[in-house]
């Protein structure tokens, strides 16, 4: 039982990651691919934050009467990673807008066919 209590968090996170990963590699629509990437990354963020959690701890902001704090390092890493994630998303979506203009579609198999004609 303690085995499950120790790991349930990570197992669900793995499931979430794989759901996102599945959307990325299976979706035909480019916008959905980007949504999948975001879900994949957000789930990895949850894994990191889980690493830093200390049972009975509190947020790592110094306050009177609190002796146990959660680990601030994973928080810093994930702050950075969130920003990196949204930066990638913005460029990806901008590419999609241009692809739509150039090909008239954002479905992967359709513009592959159009390129074959050239």
């Amino acid at each position: 039982m303690s085995f499950i209590v120790d790991y349930y968090n990570y197992w669900i996170v793995v499931f979430l990651m794989m759901a996102g990963f599945y959307i990325v590699i299976s979706a035909n629509n480019l916008v959905k691919k980007v949504v999948g990437l975001n879900i994949f990354q957000t789930s990895v963020f949850i894994m990191y934050i889980s690493i830093g959690k200390v049972s009975g701890g509190s947020a790592p902001i110094l306050a009177d009467g609190i002796t146990s704090y959660s680990n601030p390092l994973p928080h810093v890493l994930i702050l950075t990673a969130i920003v990196v994630g949204v930066a990638t998303t913005a460029v990806g979506l901008a590419l999609i807008v241009r692809i739509k203009r150039a090909y008239g579609t954002v479905e992967e198999n359709e513009f592959k066919d159009k390129d074959a004609l050239i």
Partner: peptide, 9 residues
């Protein structure tokens, strides 16, 4: 554009 997108993913 499509090459860059594929590269991005």
């Amino acid at each position: 554009l499509t090459a860059a997108f594929r590269y991005l993913v």
